[in-house]
Nucleic acid binder design. Structure first.
Lengths: 195, 195
DNA sequence: CTTTTGTTTAACAAAATTGTCAAACTTAAA
DNA sequence: TTTAAGTTTGACAATTTTGTTAAACAAAAG
C-alpha cells in the first residue's frame, strides 16, 4: 500500500506516548487520545485496526527506546566512573521528559503475561555487571552483589520522577523547584554511589 | 441501618486492594474484583453504590495506612540511626506485601486532580527533615538537601519492588531469589545511607 | 479534466462495563 | 413461627468504549 503520509499515524502514536509517558494517563481511551491529537477517533482504527494494537506498538517502541538508550551507555568505552556519570545524566534527562515510561512498561507487563524475550538483553546486562564486579575487586566500588549496585542506581534515578506528585505535595514544591531538585540529583547520585 | 455484617463489604474491599496493591492490576473492572472475591458483581453496587466510590475508599485508606506507617516511625523517640534502620525494615516488609500501593496512589492522584490536603502531613515531614538537618550539622550524615536524603531512602526502598517484573527478567531470577535480594537490601540500604 | 487511490468523516453497530430493580433468600427479633 | 430487616441473586437498562461501514473528501497519476 503506497502511503500518502499525512503524518496522522505518527501524530496519533506520539500523542498516545505523551499521554502515557509524560502525563501518566495510563488508562487513556481512544477518544481521549484522538481528542488530544485533534483528530477523529475513527482514524485510530484506520491506522491501527484496534486499540490493543496501538498499545502494543507503543509498548514495544517504548521498550526498544529504553533498551537502546541503556545500550549506548553500557557499550561505550569510557572508564567506569565516566560511564556511570554519563548513565546518570542521560537517564535523568530522558526520565524528565518521560517520567512514566517505565511505569507504562511495568503495568503493561502485568496485564499481558508477555514472555518478553529478554534473553538478548540479559547478555549486555551481564557484561556490564561483570564490569561492576571488576571495579569492586579493584576496590573502586564498595563490595556488594552487582545486582544490588544496579538496583541502587536505577532506583535513585527513576523513582523520584514516578513519585513526583506525591513528593511535590509532601515538600510543598512547585514544578520548577522540583525540576531543579532533579537536576541537582545528577551530582548527588554520583556521590552517593561513589562516596 | 443496622448491619448484619457478613463480611462481604470488607471482603470486596480487601480483594480490590489485593488486585491493585499486590498484583498491580491497576485497571481491574468491578467484574474482575467480584470474581476474585467469589461474589456477585451486584454486591459491589449494593455496598459501595458505584465503582468510583469503591476506588475512592480504597485510595483514601491506602493513603491513610501509608501515612500512619510512616508516622509511627517518624514520631518514635529512637536515636536517628535506629529510626532509619527501623524505617527501612518496616517499609520494606510492607512494600513486599503491597508493592504497587504507592503506584496506585500516584496514578489515582493523576486521574482526579484531588487537591489532597497534605498540609497536616507536611508538618510531620518538616519535623523529620529538621532532624535530618541536625544530624548533618553534627557530621553524622553527609551534608545535602534533606529532601534529597529522603528521596534517596524512599527510592532505594520502594523502586526495586515496582520494577520487580522488569528486573527479574533482566537478572534471570525467580520470585524466591528476588525476595532474598530484597531482604538483603535492608542492610545494604542502611550502609549506603551511612557509608 | 477525470480517474484512481488513499484519507477523513459521520452514522451506525457491537461489545464491554456499569448501574438498577424486584424477587428470592437468610438471619435475628418479635 | 411469623415478621422484619438486611443480604444476595438474576434479569434488565443505561452508559461508555470500541469497532465497522459507506460516503465525502483530497491529492497524485493518467
Amino acid at each position: 500500500m503506497s502511503t500518502r503520509d499525512t503524518g496522522t499515524e505518527q501524530l496519533i502514536k506520539d500523542t498516545a506516548k505523551h499521554l502515557f509517558f509524560a502525563e501518566g494517563k495510563l488508562h487513556a481511551t481512544t477518544q481521549e487520545i484522538a481528542d488530544a491529537a485533534g483528530v477523529n477517533r475513527t482514524l485510530v482504527n484506520y491506522y491501527f485496526r484496534s486499540r490493543d494494537i496501538l498499545f502494543d506498538q507503543v509498548f514495544t517502541e517504548a521498550q526498544t527506546a529504553f533498551i537502546s538508550t541503556l545500550d549506548e551507555v553500557f557499550e561505550s568505552n569510557m572508564p567506569f566512573k565516566e560511564k556511570i556519570r554519563n548513565l546518570i545524566s542521560v537517564f535523568i534527562d530522558e526520565t524528565a521528559l518521560y517520567p512514566y515510561r517505565q511505569l507504562f512498561i511495568i503495568t503493561e507487563m502485568n496485564r499481558n503475561v508477555i514472555l518478553n524475550e529478554k534473553k538478548s538483553r540479559a547478555k549486555t546486562v551481564k557484561i556490564f555487571m561483570e564490569e561492576i564486579q571488576k571495579e569492586m575487586d579493584n576496590g573502586q566500588v564498595k563490595k556488594m552483589d552487582p545486582k544490588q549496585f544496579m538496583l541502587n542506581i536505577f532506583s535513585l534515578m527513576a523513582h523520584p520522577f514516578l513519585t513526583a506528585p506525591l513528593h511535590k505535595a509532601l515538600f510543598g514544591m512547585n514544578d520548577e523547584e522540583y525540576a531543579t531538585l532533579m537536576e541537582d540529583r545528577k551530582q548527588l547520585i554520583f556521590e552517593t554511589i561513589f562516596p
